[in-house]
Write a protein that binds this DNA or RNA. Structure first.
Lengths: 177, 177
DNA sequence: CCTATGCATTCACCTAGGTTAACAAATACA
DNA sequence: TGTATTTGTTAACCTAGGTGAATGCATAGG
């Protein structure tokens, strides 16, 4: 595969276009050697498991998305995030060895700000939106995913139970007739 | 005032160390000319007002913090965030004219990633923590703020009502005796 | 000094969403 | 193909936290 430009050429390990089977775990909680992945085909997700053993999906990464633990990276701490494949996928591992030159930084800065922006929005959403509004939001962000991942995972992403999501969808279908 | 290093020297408008009175609104929803502020003394906050007219505090910015709307900046959109002063404060406005050179980007990248990391953590917290756990978290992040801002603002930051916070604090005091 | 406004607390409710469980449908797998 | 596991749905209950209102205190401004 050929890369679009020099930036990507440098950031990704050439030739490391891995194919991973559905269910493969690429990173687990506690890992210290943090990895980031760019998805070229398929679907990854990252999630945490809380103190009560419950899974919370932090993000989905379909084609053209990047997953990784910025928090662990910034603070040089072991990660809390698991990353696994929800579908057979084709991914590029981001090269951890590449030195961040000034030139790379400028391009990376834009991406980092964009990522922060997305997160800011998600925080505002989580603070003020009802379950139903969150569902709408999910559909906006991932328009092609709502019939591609199981409902219980959507629920986990929204921070509600699968039953609540089912209830909401039922009410919606009924009200709209 | 003297700046610590060249980066700050460039980023902040020299001589623009403004003093603002408690209550001053520095930015409002809908503003298109987005501003960021570094707080050298006092306390700012940023918040949104949702569809139902309810205030949600997005962040506090005591001494040495920076506030601004990354989301609006990244997407070149009018902001949803208000920024105002909770105390008489001394602030530096970040120069919007400064051109981001490669060298600046490298230093900015670290800050941006750190900001994203903080937000990532907040998202995980909002998805999995109870009101009480959030309160603990608030105290960790802003140890000097919990008797400096009114409870109702802490509640707004946590995403709960002042009554709920009062109830929780009451139970805690009682249980611990 | 008096009055007004804002804040914290408490109480009696209400409600969105969680929990548990049963069952049906879909999917995986042997 | 048949069996087992995973999913989605529904329903009966439970609970954390919201709402609204009353009360007491503190602070601000005249």
């Amino acid at each position: 595969m050929l890369y679009k430009n020099n930036l990507e050429n440098m950031l990704f390990e050439k030739g490391l276009s891995k194919t991973v089977k559905k269910g493969t775990i690429l990173q687990r909680e506690g890992d210290t050697q943090l990895k980031s992945f760019a998805v070229t085909k398929g679907l990854l997700r990252s999630y945490i498991i809380d103190a009560k053993g419950k899974e919370h999906i932090f993000m989905f990464a379909p084609e053209d998305w990047i997953v990784g633990d910025l928090y662990g990276k910034a603070l040089k701490q072991p990660t809390r995030l698991f990353i696994d494949a929800l579908e057979d996928s084709e991914i590029l591992e981001i090269n951890p060895e590449v030195e961040i030159t000034n030139e790379l930084a400028l391009k990376g800065l834009e991406k980092a700000i964009r990522r922060a922006a997305m997160l800011q929005n998600r925080v505002l959403m989580l603070m003020s939106a009802t379950a139903w509004e969150r569902y709408q939001y999910f559909i906006e962000i991932y328009p092609d995913l709502y019939n591609r991942v199981p409902q219980k995972m959507i629920a986990s992403y929204l921070g509600i139970t699968p039953q609540a999501l089912s209830r909401i969808r039922g009410e919606w279908a009924r009200s709209k007739k």
